[in-house]
């Protein structure tokens, strides 16, 4: 459970994120939506403690976020940033292995269990056959999946993903979200994820958090979110909602 109190992030003396009061569940699949520059990434960086608030604080598990040591935090929260580094000279498997660092630290020994977790994570994102390929030679989508596998190998109860689907084709996008949903249902891991695709979000999310100009404008269930006025005021363009022809959900069209 993340609890925000009077959180303000300023840049050049201008507030870019202002959330007086918010409680984010860490046992559900929550999707953060919003326009470019609305403050989604800033919010996520705060959750991952990559950015320190100018005012106010965030509590996690009823403890201030600053109260965790870096390793304790990584054992609790696994964060995937928006832009992924080169990771030059590492194979995909070696990259995924780095996800185990929080558990055995600087000098701790590798056990069979760690190797198994890495193998399983690679399998979950469908990269088992490419594990010996160099990361810098992988395609954009493979690279992104490799980083996601690293996140899985970290086995933290909370996963934070900032636009993890940006380099994935449509089938991998749906596979990834199915995988995250499955993880959430089976292991109870909480997932907070930034997406741009409203329909992808609507299909998999338990809860939606909408951000506009640094403020939280909606936080609730998908059904409550998929309303014409709601979407139009968030994105400032005309939207139409139609019923899915086969299952009982709504599909948003921009028009």
């Amino acid at each position: 459970m993340f609890e925000f109190s009077q959180l303000i992030i300023e840049r050049n003396q201008r507030p870019i994120l202002d959330i007086p009061n918010l409680t984010l569940a860490t046992d559900k699949l929550t999707v953060i939506l919003g326009k470019n520059g609305s403050g989604k990434t800033t919010l996520m960086q705060c959750l991952a403690r990559q950015l320190h608030p100018s005012k106010g604080c965030i509590r996690f598990k009823e403890k201030p976020l600053l109260g965790f040591s870096q390793r304790q935090l990584a054992q609790e929260i696994a964060f995937l940033p928006q832009s992924l580094s080169e990771a030059a000279g590492l194979t995909i498997r070696e990259l995924v292995q780095l996800g185990r660092f929080p558990w055995h630290g600087t000098w701790g020994r590798w056990r069979q269990k760690d190797h198994d977790i890495v193998t399983q994570s690679l399998k979950q994102v469908g990269l088992s056959h490419y594990e010996n390929q160099l990361v810098e030679e992988a395609s954009g989508g493979e690279k992104q999946r490799a980083w996601i596998a690293m996140l899985l190998a970290q086995q933290s109860p909370v996963l934070l993903l900032d636009e993890p689907t940006s380099a994935l084709d449509i089938s991998h996008q749906y596979e990834l979200l199915s995988l995250l949903q499955k993880l959430n249902r089976e292991t109870g891991q909480g997932i907070i994820i930034i997406l741009h695709d409203v329909n992808l979000a609507a299909r998999y999310a338990d809860r939606i958090l909408a951000i506009d100009e640094g403020r939280c404008v909606f936080h609730g269930t998908v059904d409550d979110f998929m309303k014409k006025e709601q979407l139009e005021s968030l994105y400032n363009i005309p939207m139409t909602l139609i019923n899915h022809p086969e299952n009982n959900t709504k599909v948003a069209l921009a028009c």
Binding site: A48, Q70, R71, Q72, A74, F79, L80, P81, F101
Partner: peptide
């Protein structure tokens, strides 16, 4: 060497 954000997210105090 991969990056500071990555290192911090894996539990290294950068």
């Amino acid at each position: 060497s991969i990056g500071r954000i990555t290192a911090a997210a894996r539990g290294v105090s950068v």
